[in-house]
Design a protein around this nucleic acid. Structure first.
Ligand SMILES: [Zn+2]
Ligand SMILES: [Zn+2]
Ligand SMILES: [Zn+2]
Ligand SMILES: [Zn+2]
Lengths: 161, 161
DNA sequence: TATGGCCTGATACAGTGTATCATACTACAT
DNA sequence: ATGTAGTATGATACACTGTATCAGGCCATA
């Protein structure tokens, strides 16, 4: 499902830089927090960042496979759990897949724009949206603690093309 | 189910009335649209409405089982697809489960308030929220066609104790 | 060295969803 | 009534996603 479109990225950008920056931020963050970004976790994070499309746990598993040893599913899920806990990765609920976060400094649950054409996902993380949802829920007596917001549609590039 | 009833705790309300009303609306709607609410689809809808908690496809499958024959998974998924297409049922993405809609007259994707304590889910269907999300996405060049909004927290009753 | 906590390996299984082919039913036209 | 096309369901097998559990390994500290 993924491989064909894995190479499609937002226009004119150096994706190696995205990955490099993400890994660097992750290193820094984990040092600050005394968390251990082990080689396995780092490798999984790298694979999640292989594109701007959400990646399935079993895709990651398959690609870890290429590197000599053959890990089992729990290995990947544990690494993902760690990365999610530290805000380095988001889970896209409507796709059962995982996406790297580009501003993990403060833990958050973002809002996601999923292009149905190219499959790329961008994160909004808009505080107005968050507050609006909190308020609207509160008006109904509901105390919202976490939010899942995922919009499917057409990204700017796919609209143009 | 009336608007007022939406905001009371599902224990201590006449749930049979919820189910009855939902089925009646479904019948009417399907007649209007020339869609066929077959016995199987009607039964699945009834099972989805067995509570105000989202129901898994395999839960439904298990309860259909009680009634003599033993359907296979595709049977349930096809029925759910039909019901979702006609707005009679929503899928709760973050739970891989399904919830009856109490105002299916106009097709829509609602916003859901999921109580982590009692598991009940209520639907907001707030147009401000919908418009805010559309606008915020549009500001980023994204044309949103469908929205998934699911908030987890505490409902009014579970807050009270 | 010993101990305890955390990370990973490994097996098995549970839960969710789909592809595919076959059969049965319905509606409609002949 | 008969045939035909379209829809609905039955049935098998499989793919995808996630977890429970136990065992072994690594590392820091006492
Ligand atoms: Zn990139
Ligand atoms: Zn796109
Ligand atoms: Zn009810
Ligand atoms: Zn509650």
């Amino acid at each position: 499902m993924t491989d064909a479109a894995l190479h499609i990225h937002p226009t004119g950008h150096d994706h190696a830089a995205c990955v490099g920056e993400a890994l660097e931020i992750a290193e820094t963050l984990c040092v600050e927090r005394g968390a251990r970004l082990t080689p396995l976790r780092r490798r999984v994070l790298e694979l999640v960042w292989s594109s701007h499309r959400p990646v399935g746990a079993y895709d990651i598993l398959g690609r870890l496979d290429e590197s000599a040893r053959k890990p089992a599913p729990p290995t990947v899920y544990r690494a993902l759990d760690f990365l999610i806990e530290h805000g380095l990765v988001h889970r896209i609920e409507s796709m059962n897949a995982y996406l790297g976060c580009n501003h993990p400094e403060q833990s958050h649950t973002g809002q996601f724009l999923i292009c149905r054409e190219c499959g790329n996902v961008t994160e909004m993380d808009d505080d107005d949206v968050r507050q609006t949802l909190r308020r609207k829920a509160a008006e109904r007596g509901f105390d919202a603690r976490s939010q899942t917001v995922e919009l499917v549609g057409l990204c700017a590039n796919c609209k143009a093309g």
